[in-house]
Design a protein around this nucleic acid. Structure first.
Ligand SMILES: NC(=O)c1ccc[n+]([C@@H]2O[C@H](COP(=O)([O-])OP(=O)(O)OC[C@H]3O[C@@H](n4cnc5c(N)ncnc54)[C@H](O)[C@@H]3O)[C@@H](O)[C@H]2O)c1
Ligand SMILES: NC(=O)c1ccc[n+]([C@@H]2O[C@H](COP(=O)([O-])OP(=O)(O)OC[C@H]3O[C@@H](n4cnc5c(N)ncnc54)[C@H](O)[C@@H]3O)[C@@H](O)[C@H]2O)c1
Lengths: 243, 243
DNA sequence: CGCGATTTGTGCGCCGGTTCACAAACACCT
DNA sequence: AGGTGTTTGTGAACCGGCGCACAAATCGCG
């Protein structure tokens, strides 16, 4: 897993050649446009692992080590990274800091991305107070709710705003991502308002499917569904009550 | 979407033949063992849609209508349902109540399944207070935390327990599913304790990968990663800052 | 300077899943 | 009873992703 830092203060020439390897690969740089969907979905996990290793003082990592830490096979990880360009040095591995930068670039996280949160109830409050966004390239930038009693309340230094403010706040920041944590009955209406305001990507926590223009991207997180899928696997393995 | 209830009080014979169609299909019933992974992952969404329709008073639904409500294509939905057996009546659609029962059976939700929650902080408290489990076949059955100050606190009628109680509570209920909402630094240790206690399926909310025996199933929910994937799609569509 | 050890990058076959399109089955109406 | 319209179930082609296995590249060392 940890190659015990093979080069700690080596001479410069080989290091420079390592930094230049991305020029020798392809002049166009990372092919963001035709990156496989499945690969893109795994890049965030790789990014987190890499940042973790960087914080621990490592400078390079092998595909084997990275793969183990990210919970995938080394072949899959190598093929994924190869889609970004021919970074990495044979016999050595990947330069962690450089790779972090490249993945951030591909994911569009080079500059901090602002996220809006709509529906500041039990779940919304938890997400608003979440402190795990450091190094993710993301920033909760605005909170919205429909309940007049909640408007004005401060959470983590941010005020809860009225939905009426949504259009200008979205334009001002600017905000392109939003998470919906309202009851399911309000989710579609909220999604419509978000789309109208200019939001183009939505993370939906409400248990319902949203209808949006095809130019808008929606992902869904549903606690009950995840547990039900686990229940199925469980049921498949042990057809009748465990015990 | 709504076929305006084509049969509201029709004669009995055709209805009985509809109820018997599962006998005419295959004597073995639903083939739970060799159900495609992707299909199983969509069944919970179908289940939710079907229950919604049932609550609204509908008795049958077409693949077209169901597919639209579940956000998939009708062909995909039909093939998915065909894996459960030859339910459904050509020219009419599917019997909603019957289908609900069949999906619950396949997912192992025929009897209420008990779920444990470990780590009752901001997120854990929100999940513990969640009231959206009606009709999901799931039930939050126990809450655990390591912080002595939190132990004994009541949330939604359930006491926060010490992790020391985990083994016997898991055995007593019995519990086979658990969700981890502790900090990432504690997640692996908690997972180990859960596995030792007999839990065989884990839903992990902590931003880290868990190492577990292969007999244990893990799914992961990560807010930051979901947003980063959305960021990528965003970045792919509009390479430079939106404005 | 050459050699062995190491690790990347990828060509290729395989497999599961998705989509299309249509025949078969069923209900309803006359 | 038969004809008509509707909807299911599925065969077959297609597609993307995955894993294997290995050649190519690079490093370290003698
Ligand atoms: N709490 C959980 O653990 C959990 C888990 C999974 C899914 N969910 C889902 O997340 C959503 C929120 O859950 P919750 O427990 O926080 O509910 P909640 O009732 O505590 O909070 C909902 C919030 O949304 C606000 N709201 C209502 N209508 C609105 C509108 N039109 N515009 C803006 N804000 C509006 C309400 O004022 C409230 O503050 C629900 O859809 C729920 O099903 C929650
Ligand atoms: N809050 C969010 O919105 C959010 C969003 C995404 C992911 N997460 C993740 O969910 C997890 C929980 O987040 P949070 O905001 O609720 O954190 P939190 O600090 O509020 O709560 C963590 C809880 O876990 C308990 N705990 C710590 N060590 C434990 C152990 N060994 N055994 C049992 N309990 C233990 C603590 O006492 C505390 O009550 C974190 O991993 C976080 O990264 C949270």
């Amino acid at each position: 897993m940890s190659p015990s830092r093979p080069m700690a203060g080596t001479c410069y020439p080989p290091f420079r050649s390592l930094m230049n390897s991305h020029r020798t690969g392809l002049p166009g740089g990372p092919r963001v446009q035709d990156l496989p969907e499945a690969t893109a979905a795994r890049l965030p996990e790789y990014l987190r692992v890499l940042q973790h290793l960087a914080d621990a003082g490592h400078e390079t990592a092998s595909s084997e080590g990275l793969a183990a830490a990210a919970g995938v096979t080394s072949a899959k990880l190598r093929k994924d990274l190869s889609h970004l360009g021919s970074y990495g040095t044979r016999g050595v591995g990947y330069d962690i800091a450089f790779l972090v930068r490249q993945i951030e670039l591909v994911l569009g996280l080079a500059r901090l991305r602002a996220v809006a949160l709509v529906g500041i109830g039990n779940l919304g409050r938890a997400l608003a107070g979440y402190d795990g966004f450091t190094n993710t390239g993301l920033r909760i930038a605005a909170l919205f709710d429909a309940d007049p009693n909640r408007i004005g309340e401060m959470i983590n230094g941010l005020p809860v705003r009225s939905l009426d403010d949504l259009p200008w706040v979205v334009a001002e920041e600017p905000i392109s991502l939003a998470a919906i944590t309202t009851p399911a009955s309000a989710a579609q209406a909220v999604a419509n308002q978000l789309v109208t305001a200019g939001v183009t990507s939505i993370l939906n926590f409400a248990p319902c499917v949203l209808a949006v223009p095809e130019s808008v991207d929606v992902r869904k997180v549903d606690l009950a569904i995840e547990l039900q899928i686990l229940s199925f696997q469980e049921h498949r393995r042990r057809p009748e009550g465990a015990r």
